[in-house]
Design a binder for these strands. Structure first.
Lengths: 189, 189
DNA sequence: GTGGTTGATGAGACCGCGTCTCATCAACGT
DNA sequence: ACGTTGATGAGACGCGGTCTCATCAACCAC
């Protein structure tokens, strides 16, 4: 048991998404978010580096999971098999209860360039982590970068479909997207 | 003839790069940049949306050039031939005198996450523009996205090598990078 | 239990970013 | 000579983000 309400982070996240959706990102101040969560501005900035980060902090674990998935894959795996293992490792993060949450999150992010920009940055971070993990497994730089890019693209496409309510679980969608991207890449002329 | 010094934009850009390189991004205020350019903060924000944009405004023309290159390519061109045409179209932007400038720019951008983030955003914008131009030429969505991604990656790799002083001109480097990426993508397993 | 420690929180000052409004003024046309 | 145009300057304003100091509930040692 904690001495204070233990879920202040999540309260702030929910308050932020609600307010951004209700009245827009620019029209919402950090003090407002904190107040709705029963906290103050100072506490908000102790939890999140800046106003944008409240919507993205949950993704920071994904880089680690992807890298761990690559590291744990069997010997002799090809680059795309390593990427598939990475996607498998991150699949556990996506449980059914979060589909609606993810959909709301995506809508809010898409509503403001400042958030789209942070999204692009986080995505680059994911790709960088995946690429580094692949290099760690002996993959050369260029194929590692390409495989990482395909993996992150599959990751995002699968997330979009999952949030949109497709019946398959996340892991199935991610695998399918990775396969589709691989086939398309091999066919490029 | 203009009534005021006509190059206020470029003066601001140079002042910003100088100050960022000398004393760091965080330690440089917009008012300082404007003062070194003989202007004021208000004028800075009339020229650039925000403090970061002063380093990236020059790239906004690239999206247009890439799209025009795709649109002007001959009928029957494959996706990667369209991308190559796009890279050719943007090559004229890179003249010898700017190599050193590009190198300084790259160093400053790499020195601060806020600038790396804007770079990722601009890169996503380039890829989106290129992808849209490819779709306009009848390329299906997935291959268009992949070819655009390869094109932008080649664009950036070639720019990095060009700034680092490799003897070839930009167009040659870009073509070589695109070919290398294509080969690596086709070989991915 | 008494007292000290720990750690999350609140309060509030502070500075820079970014926006906005209004005034200024050089070049141009009539 | 006069009005227009358009870039600029001046300065107020609100919010983002940082920092310091005070508060206070839970825990620990004795």
């Amino acid at each position: 048991m904690a001495r204070w309400e233990p879920d202040s982070r999540m309260r702030l996240v929910r308050a932020a998404i609600d307010l951004f959706a209700e009245q827009g990102y620019d029209e919402t101040t950090v003090a407002e978010i904190a107040a709705r969560a029963g906290l103050t501005k100072a506490t908000f900035f102790r939890q999140f580096r800046d106003k944008r980060e409240v919507l993205f902090a949950g993704q920071d674990a994904h880089s680690t999971l992807l890298a761990e998935g690559v590291a744990a894959a069997p010997d002799g795996a090809t680059p795309l098999e390593l990427v598939a293992a990475a996607l498998d490792a991150v699949t556990a993060s996506f449980v059914e209860e979060q589909r609606a949450f993810g959909a709301r999150l995506r809508a809010v992010v898409a509503s403001h360039d400042e958030l789209v920009e942070r999204d692009a940055f986080k995505r680059a971070g994911l790709a960088g982590a995946l690429r580094a993990a692949l290099r760690e497994r002996g993959i050369a730089d260029t194929p590692a970068g390409l495989a990482a890019e395909l993996g992150v693209e599959a990751f995002h496409r699968a997330f979009a479909r999952w949030c949109d309510g497709e019946p398959e679980d996340y892991g199935t969608l991610a695998r399918a997207e990775l396969d589709a991207l691989h086939a398309a890449a091999a066919a490029l002329r």
